[in-house]
Design a binder for these strands. Structure first.
Length: 356
DNA sequence: AAGTGTTTCAACCGCCTCCTG
DNA sequence: CCAGGAGGCGGTTGAAACACT
């Protein structure tokens, strides 16, 4: 195994820059400018090609977010990393050992794209610790988990929205500018980096040209505060209504689960309830999951494309700020909202259902 | 076609907070 | 309580892409 690993390293360069892949072709003699492809175009094209296993390209140098052992909750699925079924599945499929030093796919380096193909989902890759460690240690040494994660979040995430910023999105950016992460949370599929860049490109120059006197600044601040207060009020109202509905709908199921727990004498953890009630991996930043969860809250209602409802709906995901809950544990937050007045408390090593 | 200025945007940097052991 | 690490966040950089002459 080790010998084959060394062979793979000889084939592959020691380090890839995310940006400089075509640098040697820059402005060749006799070639017109303007023929360079945007990185997005390169990626798109490569997605439809079958590269040899050990041939590096823009697709297979992707890395999923780092998932180091101290992190208990998967940043992608919201589930506990150790308890993840997907983890076992991926490890089995990728034929990895836990040290991450075993060469993949019968001695050849398995690319990210191939792993993605095998598992069938990008979501599962959030848990492939050995794969990331292997890659970072042996091939792309100058990338750490943080830079890979950043690339995933800002660029590779499957639920990222492409295309122009819509007027609706623009209005939110204008209202809330300079708090990029908040804006990003309110605009599904957009990253804070993208919004930041958009602001700098489209508005900063204008702001410089027209002198921003104190009155204007004050008005904007006031407007911003009003907007946030309005948002908060709407969120609270909607949350209250939804919780009332859900309490009625789900109480039976919760009681039956608790009943089962007593029957089987097995501990009923939040994860089990979560799996029972919400069989899909909850990661509400995808359009699909937004749709799913929207229907959970709004039976018989259509998912809005991009309306003021987006703000209200997305605001639900910011509720951890109100409750002071760990922002990484989104799956749990959903459940705490779902069950309204009910929550789980850890008493004497056992989870107990209680009410607020 | 070639040169030059401008815009776009992926990635990096450094500080901060939070979590874990 | 403390130290160390991971991740969040806003500011910044600089190469690629684009626009204009």
């Amino acid at each position: 195994m080790e010998a084959e690993l060394i062979n793979a390293e000889l084939v592959l360069p020691t380090h890839f820059s995310f940006k400089r892949i075509q640098i040697y072709e820059k402005y060749p003699k006799g070639q017109p400018r303007g023929r360079w492809k945007h990185l997005k175009q390169i990626l798109q094209a490569e997605n439809y090609q079958n590269f040899p296993t050990d041939e590096p390209n823009y697709v297979n140098i992707e890395s999923p977010p780092s998932m180091h052992p101290p992190l208990r909750i998967c940043g992608i699925t919201g589930f506990e990393v150790c308890a993840s079924v997907e983890m076992c599945l991926v490890l089995e499929l990728a034929d990895l050992n836990l040290n991450g030093l075993k060469c993949l796919d019968g001695g050849r380096v398995l690319t990210f794209a191939q792993l993605k193909q095998r598992t069938g989902s990008c979501f599962l890759l959030g848990n492939v610790v050995p794969y990331v460690n292997y890659m970072s240690r042996h091939i792309w040494l100058k990338r750490n988990g943080k830079s890979c994660r950043l690339r995933w979040v800002n660029y590779l995430r499957p639920d990222l929205k492409s295309g122009q910023i819509t007027p609706h999105e623009e209005s939110i950016i204008v209202e809330l500018h300079a708090i990029w992460s908040t804006i990003a949370r309110n605009l599904p599929g957009r990253t804070d980096n993208e919004i930041k860049n958009y602001w700098r490109t489209h508005f900063k120059k204008k702001a410089k040209l027209s002198p921003d006197n104190s009155d204007k600044a004050r008005t904007r601040l006031l407007k911003r505060q009003q907007f946030q207060q309005q948002l908060q009020r709407q969120q609270q109202q909607i949350q209250h209504q939804q919780l009332l509905q859900l309490n009625q709908l789900d109480m039976k199921k919760i009681m039956s689960l608790l009943h089962d727990e007593n029957e089987d004498k097995a501990p009923c953890t939040p994860q089990m309830i979560r799996q029972e009630m919400v069989p899909h991996a909850i990661y509400p930043n995808t359009a699909e999951d937004h749709g799913l969860l929207y229907h959970m809250f709004n039976v018989n209602a259509a998912v809005p494309e991009a309306s003021s409802d987006d703000i209200i709906w997305d605001g639900l995901w910011d509720l951890e700020e109100f409750h002071g809950i760990n922002p990484g544990v989104k799956g749990s937050i959903v459940l705490e909202q779902l069950y309204g007045g009910l929550y789980y408390s850890l008493v004497g090593g056992q989870y107990q259902l209680a009410s607020f």
